[in-house]
Simulated assay, not measured.
Amino acid sequence: MKYNFVTIEGNIGAGKTTLAHLLSKHYNARLILEEFADNPFLPKFYENPKQFAFPLELFFMAERYKQLKELLHTQDLFNSITISDYLFTKCLLFAKVNLPADEFRLYQNLFDIIHQQLVQPELLIYLHSPVSRLQQNIRKRNRSYEQQIADDYLFSIQETYTQYIKQHNIKTLFIDASNADFLGNEKHLQIVIEALDKEYEQGQHYITLP
C-alpha cells in the first residue's frame, strides 16, 4: 500500500468498522476503532438531543483525542500501516449538526486547539450510502438506542461530511457504497485494495462498486 495512515469515514451505518477490520487484516495493519459504546451520554442523547448534545460531543472529542494521541505517537515496530475507522474531524462535523450556534462556537474553539496536536491521515476513504441503505444497516446491527434515528438526521450528517470534504479538498477515495458487501463479495474488497496501491492528487477520487 502507498499509505501508512488511512482513515475510513461515512455516515452512521455506512460500514466503516467492517471495512477497517478487513483492510487491517489484509495489510497486517494496526487498527484504531472508535470506542463509541463507552460514551454514557449516547443513549441519553437519542432520547433528548437538546439536553445531552453538548456533553455527548465533549466526551467524544476527549476520548478520540486521548485514543489517537496515545496510539499515533507510540512507535510500533511491527506495524508500519495504521487503519482507523474514524476521522478526528468528525467531532466538529457532528457537533455542527447537533449543537446550537453559541455552543458550537465554544466547541469549535476547543477543537481547534486539540486538532493541531494530532497526526492527520494521508488518505481518507469515504463510504457514501443512500439513507435507505443506512437505515437498513442500522436495523440489522440492532443497537437499541439507534433504532429511532430519523432520516432527516442522517441526511444532515451526510451533507455535512460531503461539504467538508469538498471545501477542504481532502485527498479522498469517495466510494459509492450503495450496494457494498465487503464481507460477502471479495471483488468489492479487492477494488478498494487495488485503489490503495495508487498515488492520488488532492481532492476526491470516485469509485463505484459493481
Rank of each mutant, 00 (worst) to 15 (best):
F60N: 07
T74W: 03
R139K: 15
E70L: 12
L134Q: 12
S129E: 09
L68E: 10
Y46S: 04
L134E: 05
K140G: 09
V131Q: 07
D102L: 13
D85G: 03
I113A: 10
Y107A: 06
L134P: 07
P49F: 01
H128K: 11
Y46P: 02
I81L: 06
S144W: 09
S84W: 07
L154Y: 08
Q148P: 09
I83M: 07
Y86R: 09
D85L: 01
Y107L: 02
Y153V: 06
K96N: 05
P121A: 00
A150Y: 05
F88A: 00
H73E: 13
N142Q: 14
V119M: 08
L124P: 00
N137C: 10
P130S: 08
F45M: 11
Q148A: 12
I113C: 10
E57A: 05
N98S: 10
R133I: 14
E70W: 08
L87E: 09
P55S: 06
F45C: 11
Q120N: 09
H115Q: 15
K66I: 00
Y107P: 00
L92H: 01
L118E: 07
P100K: 03
I83W: 01
Y46R: 04
Y65Q: 05
L110K: 02
R141M: 11
Q148G: 13
F45Q: 04
Q51L: 14
D151V: 14
P55Y: 00
L123M: 06
N98Y: 02
L134R: 03
D151W: 14
L123F: 06
S84Q: 04
L56C: 13
E70M: 09
Y126Q: 03
K90A: 00
K96H: 10
Y153K: 01
L106I: 12
E57Y: 00
K90D: 06
Q75C: 11
F78P: 00
Q116T: 13
R143I: 15
F52K: 05
P130E: 08
Q136F: 07
T82R: 01
F94K: 00
N98I: 03
I83A: 09
L123Y: 02
K44M: 11
L58E: 11
T82W: 03
L110H: 05
E63W: 01
Q120L: 11
L154R: 14
R141E: 08
N109W: 08
N142C: 08
L154M: 10
F52I: 03
Y145G: 06
D85W: 01
K66G: 04
A62M: 13
Q108A: 11
V119D: 08
Q116E: 12
M61C: 02
